[in-house]
């Protein structure tokens, strides 16, 4: 098996959901296990939500966000690319302190924390003005 799906993601608040629901249909069509689909979906959602919310200035002339999915017998892979400001969520997001009481807890960084916990292979690179995030989940 070697199937691919490419999609563009807009800057609207509903766009991450639209993208992950498309991923979900793709994953279900290829009968991937539900637990894996949920975790990968959450990771995509968290990463795309970050990009949609923070990567671009309001007057950015040509914002582009793309998601490429590839499914083989061995693994599920996603490549997220955007031409926004350089940001490596794997290093630049704050690490949440999970030991703090509710009054002192902050939610910043929690999405990335969940992403790191739920997806095995995560890699970031900055290439020719693009942020590129690579997610790999062995099957």
């Amino acid at each position: 098996m070697d199937v691919k799906l490419e999609m563009e993601v807009g800057l609207g608040q509903d766009e991450p959901r639209r993208a992950v629901e498309r991923f979900e249909r793709f994953a279900n069509a290829h009968e991937l296990p539900m637990g894996l689909v949920f975790k990968f979906q959450l990771a995509l959602d968290e990463l795309l939500t970050n990009v949609v919310s923070y990567a671009f200035d309001e007057n950015e002339p040509n914002p582009v966000i793309t998601v490429g999915l590839r499914l083989t017998d061995a693994q599920l892979e996603a490549v997220l690319q955007d031409n926004g400001r350089p940001f490596n969520p794997l290093l630049d997001a704050p690490e949440p302190d999970l030991g703090l009481p509710a009054e002192d807890r902050r939610v910043g960084g929690l999405g990335i924390h969940l992403t790191k916990a739920f997806v095995h292979g995560l890699r970031y690179e900055r290439v020719d003005g693009w942020n590129r995030l690579n997610l790999v989940q062995p099957l």
Binding site: L42, T49, R105, V107, L110
Partner: peptide, 11 residues
């Protein structure tokens, strides 16, 4: 389904 945006609301 709940993402960190929903966890923030619970917090």
């Amino acid at each position: 389904y709940i993402s960190s945006a929903g966890l923030r609301v619970l917090l």
